[in-house]
Simulated scan of single mutants.
Amino acid sequence: MSDDRPGILDGAVHPAEQTRFFGHAAAEQFLARSYRSGKGHHAILIEGPEGIGKATLAFRFANHVLHHPEPAEAPETMADPSPGSAITRQLVAGASHNLLHLTRPVDEKTGKVKSAITVDEVRKAGKFLAQTSGTGNWRIVIIDPADDLNRNAANAILKILEEPPKRSLFLVLTHAPGKLLPTIRSRCLPLALSPLSETDLAAALDSLGAAPSGPRAADVLSAAHGSVSEALKLVNYGGFDIVEAFRTIVDAVAEPPRRDVHKLADVLSAKDSDTVFSFFCQHVTDFVTDSARNAALSGNIARADRLAHLSSQLGERITVAQAYNLDRKQTIISVLDDIRASL
């Protein structure tokens, strides 16, 4: 089953709809016991790579808290959300008066998801928290992910975290905690999640009806590095073909045919190609970073320094290209040329 809401990958469902959870039993138990103790932190920073279950854990915990608003009466373990529960149905529909899912909004003009969480979105959180719950229940804000907060939005969130209202809970998700404001990190209790094992990844994909099959099944589980979203991109978005085309271009001994470069750039810059473009950007950044690390380990310091500098440049260039909607095809071509020149 797939979810057609913006930002949800083909083959995936919204985290609030997930009734099963894989690979993070210890983190789940920690949250349940911490809440029951009545001494739980008002802000939890759930850290880990993209696609490993951070948002699913956040919604499961929110579901648990809203079902058991008095900590001392809550069980020490979280049950799977019941689709028949009124609270679960409200969370799935995005209609809960007690939970706000703060994420990148959809641009009303283009119908596409914006590139950042803006301060206007954070203001909604302020209004949400200022309201009085008719049930006396908790007010929960899931920031998904905090990496997408622009500077003004991050500062606005910080002010709320500094003086949180009573019976409020913040579940702050991050793929890269080092990029967050140190002051935001310092006001949250960190909870780090690891990538899924191949066994748990296979089970998670199977629960979505997206278990890989055929000769590439093992390759999917290996190449996804414990991420459900990476696996779905590899299977449903032509990720393997993109990776192979990229490696053919950068590994070419002679200058690669420009038609191959333009063919890949055309695929990645086509209409509605946001997902594959993002996949490509992440892959090439990881490739350059890994190449720099390998060069350093082999003692080739000059090459390592050159590639490390390029890795930083690529991150900035891609961020600028996305923020200002620059020509994607030209961005991709220049990225490929720079990588080849630095190898």
Rank of each mutant, 00 (worst) to 15 (best):
Leu234Cys: 09
Glu244Ser: 14
Ala231Leu: 07
Leu201Lys: 13
Asp206Thr: 08
Ser207Phe: 12
Ile249Asn: 04
Asp260Asn: 11
Ala231Cys: 11
Tyr237Ile: 09
Gly226Ile: 09
Leu264Glu: 03
Pro256Trp: 11
Pro256His: 09
Ser213Tyr: 11
Ala224Ser: 07
Val220Asp: 03
Val261Ala: 02
Glu230Val: 01
Phe246Pro: 03
Gly209Thr: 04
His225Asp: 13
Lys263Asp: 09
Asp251Ser: 15
Pro215Arg: 13
Ala211Gln: 05
Ala203Asn: 12
Ala265Pro: 01
Ser207Tyr: 11
Gly239Ala: 10
Asp251Leu: 07
His262Pro: 00
Leu232Glu: 00
Ala204Arg: 02
Ala217Cys: 08
Asn236Gly: 11
Ala217Met: 04
Asp266Tyr: 06
Ala231Pro: 08
Pro256Phe: 10
Arg258Thr: 09
Val253Leu: 06
Ala224His: 07
Ala265Asp: 00
Ser207Asp: 15
Tyr237Val: 09
Ala265Lys: 01
Leu208Tyr: 10
Pro212Gln: 09
Thr199Ile: 12
Ala211Val: 08
Ser222Ile: 03
Leu201Gln: 13
Leu264Ala: 07
Leu221Gly: 02
Ser229Val: 00
Arg216Lys: 14
Val253Asp: 12
Ser229Asn: 05
Val235Lys: 05
His262Glu: 07
His262Arg: 06
Phe246Arg: 02
Asn236Glu: 03
Pro257Phe: 02
Ala245Ser: 15
Phe246Cys: 06
Glu230His: 13
Ile249Lys: 08
